[in-house]
Amino acid sequence: SSCPGKSSWPHLVGVGGSVAKAIIERQNPNVKAVILEEGTPVTKDFRCNRVRIWVNKRGLVVSPPRIG
């Protein structure tokens, strides 16, 4: 992607959502990480300053967080 800084975090799958949020925002200060339960409807727009963290009912990351 053409967004500045780190853009994906595949190693965070299985980690707690709040831990993942802290790591992502520390590694790329340009983004705001948002924790969402899988299945939550979201907009389809692409934004360089957003990372969606998809978690299951136990709050664990279920897919690699990435910019968008």
Results as ranks from 00 to 15, higher is better:
residue 45 D to G: 08
residue 64 P to R: 02
residue 14 G to D: 00
residue 29 P to G: 06
residue 25 E to L: 03
residue 3 C to E: 06
residue 36 L to P: 00
residue 38 E to G: 03
residue 25 E to Q: 05
residue 56 N to G: 03
residue 55 V to H: 04
residue 67 I to S: 08
residue 68 G to R: 04
residue 37 E to G: 04
residue 10 P to S: 06
residue 18 S to V: 13
residue 59 G to I: 02
residue 60 L to P: 00
residue 67 I to V: 12
residue 45 D to K: 06
residue 33 A to G: 11
residue 29 P to L: 05
residue 21 K to P: 02
residue 30 N to L: 12
residue 60 L to A: 07
residue 56 N to Q: 01
residue 1 S to V: 14
residue 50 R to L: 13
residue 21 K to G: 03
residue 38 E to C: 08
residue 16 G to T: 14
residue 35 I to Y: 03
residue 53 I to Y: 03
residue 60 L to F: 11
residue 40 T to P: 01
residue 33 A to T: 06
residue 28 N to Q: 04
residue 36 L to R: 05
residue 4 P to R: 11
residue 50 R to Q: 15
residue 48 C to A: 14
residue 15 V to S: 07
residue 66 R to K: 12
residue 16 G to L: 12
residue 17 G to I: 00
residue 1 S to Q: 10
residue 19 V to I: 13
residue 52 R to E: 12
residue 30 N to W: 11
residue 15 V to G: 03
residue 5 G to N: 15
residue 64 P to D: 04
residue 32 K to N: 08
residue 31 V to S: 02
residue 64 P to Y: 05
residue 40 T to F: 04
residue 56 N to W: 00
residue 44 K to E: 14
residue 9 W to C: 02
residue 59 G to M: 02
residue 44 K to A: 11
residue 53 I to S: 01
residue 32 K to I: 10
residue 48 C to M: 12
residue 42 V to S: 08
residue 5 G to Y: 09
residue 33 A to S: 04
residue 37 E to I: 10
residue 51 V to W: 02
residue 20 A to N: 00
residue 3 C to L: 15
residue 66 R to G: 07
residue 14 G to Q: 01
residue 45 D to E: 14
residue 25 E to G: 01
residue 63 S to F: 07
residue 49 N to M: 02
residue 5 G to V: 15
residue 68 G to F: 04
residue 59 G to T: 00
residue 2 S to Y: 15
residue 6 K to P: 14
residue 27 Q to E: 15
residue 45 D to P: 05
residue 51 V to M: 04
residue 41 P to A: 11
residue 40 T to E: 07
residue 8 S to M: 14
residue 32 K to W: 04
residue 50 R to M: 14
residue 13 V to D: 01
residue 12 L to P: 02
residue 23 I to N: 05
residue 6 K to Q: 15
residue 49 N to A: 06
residue 10 P to Q: 06
residue 16 G to A: 15
residue 13 V to T: 04
residue 33 A to R: 02
residue 58 R to W: 10
residue 66 R to D: 05
residue 57 K to I: 00
residue 43 T to C: 07
residue 59 G to W: 02
residue 59 G to V: 00
residue 67 I to M: 11
residue 47 R to H: 15
residue 38 E to K: 09
residue 68 G to I: 06
residue 25 E to F: 00
residue 52 R to A: 13
residue 43 T to D: 12
residue 57 K to A: 08
residue 7 S to I: 08
residue 48 C to P: 13
residue 57 K to L: 05
residue 19 V to R: 09
residue 17 G to R: 01
residue 21 K to L: 04
residue 44 K to Q: 13
residue 21 K to S: 04
residue 12 L to H: 01
residue 7 S to Q: 13
residue 43 T to H: 09
residue 36 L to C: 11
residue 57 K to Y: 06
residue 42 V to M: 07
residue 58 R to I: 13
residue 43 T to F: 06
residue 60 L to Q: 11
residue 33 A to Q: 00
residue 29 P to R: 09
residue 10 P to E: 10
residue 19 V to N: 08
residue 13 V to A: 02
residue 17 G to S: 04
residue 63 S to A: 11
residue 3 C to Y: 15
residue 42 V to Y: 07
residue 3 C to G: 11
residue 11 H to G: 12
residue 47 R to G: 15
residue 10 P to T: 08
residue 54 W to P: 04
residue 45 D to Y: 06
residue 20 A to I: 00
residue 31 V to R: 02
residue 45 D to C: 05
residue 57 K to H: 05
residue 53 I to N: 02
residue 20 A to M: 04
residue 62 V to Y: 00
residue 46 F to Y: 13
residue 27 Q to L: 07
residue 67 I to Q: 09
residue 17 G to D: 01
residue 18 S to P: 13
residue 48 C to V: 13
residue 60 L to E: 08
residue 65 P to M: 05
residue 52 R to W: 09
residue 49 N to V: 02
residue 54 W to A: 01
residue 41 P to M: 10
residue 62 V to G: 01
residue 34 V to D: 14
residue 32 K to Q: 10
residue 7 S to N: 12
residue 21 K to Q: 09
residue 9 W to K: 04
residue 18 S to C: 12
residue 39 G to N: 09
residue 62 V to C: 10
residue 26 R to A: 11
residue 42 V to N: 06
residue 8 S to T: 15
residue 23 I to W: 08
residue 38 E to A: 08
residue 57 K to V: 03
residue 43 T to W: 07
residue 46 F to K: 09
residue 59 G to E: 06
residue 9 W to Q: 03
residue 31 V to W: 06
residue 26 R to T: 09
residue 67 I to L: 12
residue 7 S to H: 12
residue 42 V to W: 05
residue 16 G to Q: 12
residue 41 P to C: 07
residue 36 L to Y: 10
residue 2 S to G: 06
residue 66 R to N: 07
residue 1 S to E: 15
residue 62 V to W: 00
residue 61 V to T: 05
residue 60 L to V: 12
residue 55 V to L: 03
residue 61 V to W: 02
residue 22 A to Q: 10
residue 65 P to L: 03
residue 67 I to T: 12
residue 11 H to T: 10
residue 17 G to A: 06
residue 14 G to Y: 03
residue 8 S to E: 14
residue 63 S to I: 09
residue 65 P to K: 01
residue 12 L to A: 02
residue 27 Q to H: 09
residue 54 W to N: 04
residue 34 V to L: 07
residue 44 K to V: 07
residue 63 S to H: 11
residue 22 A to P: 00
residue 34 V to N: 08
residue 3 C to V: 15
residue 50 R to G: 12
residue 57 K to F: 04
residue 3 C to A: 14
residue 49 N to F: 02
residue 35 I to K: 03
residue 55 V to R: 00
residue 63 S to D: 09
residue 2 S to L: 12
residue 36 L to S: 05
residue 12 L to T: 04
residue 56 N to V: 04
residue 57 K to T: 08
residue 23 I to F: 11
residue 5 G to K: 14
residue 32 K to Y: 06
residue 26 R to H: 06
residue 51 V to G: 01
residue 46 F to G: 09
residue 46 F to Q: 10
residue 13 V to P: 01
residue 28 N to F: 08
residue 4 P to Q: 12
residue 37 E to N: 10
residue 53 I to E: 02
residue 32 K to F: 07
residue 48 C to N: 13
residue 14 G to R: 01
residue 52 R to N: 11
residue 51 V to I: 05
residue 59 G to S: 04
residue 9 W to D: 01
residue 47 R to P: 14
residue 58 R to P: 03
residue 15 V to A: 09
residue 15 V to K: 11
residue 8 S to F: 13
residue 53 I to D: 05
residue 21 K to Y: 02
residue 12 L to Q: 00
residue 11 H to Y: 10
